[in-house]
Design a protein around this nucleic acid. Structure first.
Lengths: 214, 214
DNA sequence: CCTACCGATCGGTAGG
DNA sequence: CCTACCGATCGGTAGG
């Protein structure tokens, strides 16, 4: 209930948004969806009157943007830091996916908002998010391209579709990975990486279509 | 318990919802999101007054449910029809993914609504959707289990995570597969299946970790 | 299918 | 941070 006092900021105009507001917004947006959550819901969760929110924030959209921008940035930073270019591509991929799952495990709800509600942002903010989002996808693109160039990865017919398979799988993780599960982020990451690197086929089995040819 | 059906044909007090309404709703919900679209937006798109909508529908949620229920059912039917149990598991998986992409290509916007907005349904409708959704996932589970039993697929350490990798990839497809692309649904399906069955690693290459061991 | 309208709620502001 | 309130818009209904 104790609402932290707002620090008198030097640059005045925009005070730092109190953490309670952001945290409650993450929780509400993740559970019910941004458009459905009213400012009165948020204010009630924070423990103040709805009008009072606006001495801390500029608008509802500002709060969403804050959550989404920080949300993606966290992934971009963690993944690009983990998958340094000097490592073998398959290891880089494994580390990238592990970084992804580690970030996820620490911020499931924020990730839901980040990857699931950014299209409710206005054109300006949305453009910025798309840019960050592109940077996120480019990390995996570079790993894949390096891998192919080095001969570690196959030269797949449709690299883009293959990459979107991985990215889609990662974007879906907040829907099923809950903190209540006993499995560690690393184990889940390795399961995903393993599927993407080695596939489902049993070793030396070959595809049914291939078996028919011989 | 009572599952809403609009299939009463004879003395139905409730007429079949006109196709224009459903089509415009799909378009608007897919583009802007269900909670953001007002009934006045929908009525304007249809070309009537907002009050007049209610001689065709019961409520806004009814329209969403119609879209979502039909949306999933289409996938369940197409996939289970394509992947018959008599075929080899890897071929079944390929056919299942192809069926998925074929349905997608024919209903991108409805799929966006189906997989992205169902949580806005009330508890009763949502329960029904979760059930259908489960059936959808179970198709892939059975293929995977059969494959492992027959020795065609590897015995992966975390089958559930591996399956959710595939399902996540498929659920993400409406975000990037647009009808304007020249690639056929089959080609995209095969790219995804190929990634899942054979992985990214070059043949005979082995993982970097494995290479270090020898 | 229309006009007219309902109570509720929305994001946000004024002025202390 | 509060009280009081704004105009706009929401899903839905009445009665033709």
């Amino acid at each position: 209930m104790a609402v932290p006092r707002n620090s008198r900021s030097t640059s005045a105009r925009r005070p730092v948004v109190p953490d309670v507001i952001v945290q409650e917004a993450i929780h509400l947006f993740a559970e019910h969806g941004y458009p459905v959550v009213g400012m009165r819901d948020l204010s009630k969760a924070v423990g103040i009157q709805s009008g009072s929110l606006y001495s801390h924030i500029d608008s509802k959209e500002t709060v969403l943007m804050l959550i989404v921008e920080q949300g993606i940035t966290r992934y971009v930073d963690a993944i690009s830091a983990a998958a340094t270019p000097d490592l073998p591509p398959d290891i880089r991929l494994r580390l990238a996916v592990r970084a992804h799952m580690t970030v996820l495990a620490g911020s499931i709800e924020q990730t839901k908002v980040t990857f699931g509600q950014w299209h409710y942002l206005g054109p300006e903010n949305r453009a910025r998010v798309v840019e960050l989002r592109q940077r996120y996808e480019d990390i995996f693109l570079e790993i894949a391209q390096d891998g192919i160039r080095q001969g570690v990865f196959r030269k797949v017919p449709h690299l883009k579709a293959t990459l979107l398979t991985l990215i889609g799988a990662l974007n879906f993780t907040p829907e099923w990975y809950s903190s209540s599960k006993p499995e560690s982020p690393e184990q889940m990451a390795d399961a995903i990486t393993d599927a993407m690197l080695n596939g489902l086929m049993a070793p030396h089995a070959g595809t049914s279509a291939a078996r028919r040819k011989r």
